[in-house]
């Protein structure tokens, strides 16, 4: 199962480090990262593979949200299908 993690908020040092630390701990493999600054807002999109995930999907979502709170950014974890079904025929 693949999922997309999106991070939106103020840019600061350590955003990617904090998130990847959670992903390493939960055995999540990063397939692709892309980031950009849009209208002064830091935006990062990460495609991840959850096939070796060592906790359940909901728990991973909670862990990421905690990190988001600490960093003051908005982090979402969503199954990949929502994006592929909306944007691909």
């Amino acid at each position: 199962m693949k999922a997309v993690i999106t991070v939106v908020g103020c840019d600061k040092i350590g955003i990617i480090a904090s998130i990847t630390a959670v992903l390493a701990k939960t055995q999540v493999n990063i397939l692709d990262i892309s980031q950009t600054i849009m209208q002064n807002i830091f935006t990062m999109v990460m495609l991840v593979d959850l096939s070796k995930l060592n906790c359940d999907f909901a728990h991973l979502g909670e862990l990421l949200q905690e990190v988001g709170k600490e960093l003051g950014v908005d982090i979402r974890l969503q199954r990949e299908e929502i994006f592929t079904s909306m944007h691909r025929i």
Partner: peptide, 12 residues
């Protein structure tokens, strides 16, 4: 792969 604008559109 995926397109960052598509993903942000969905989220918005």
């Amino acid at each position: 792969m995926f397109n960052i604008n598509d993903i942000l559109e969905t989220i918005n």
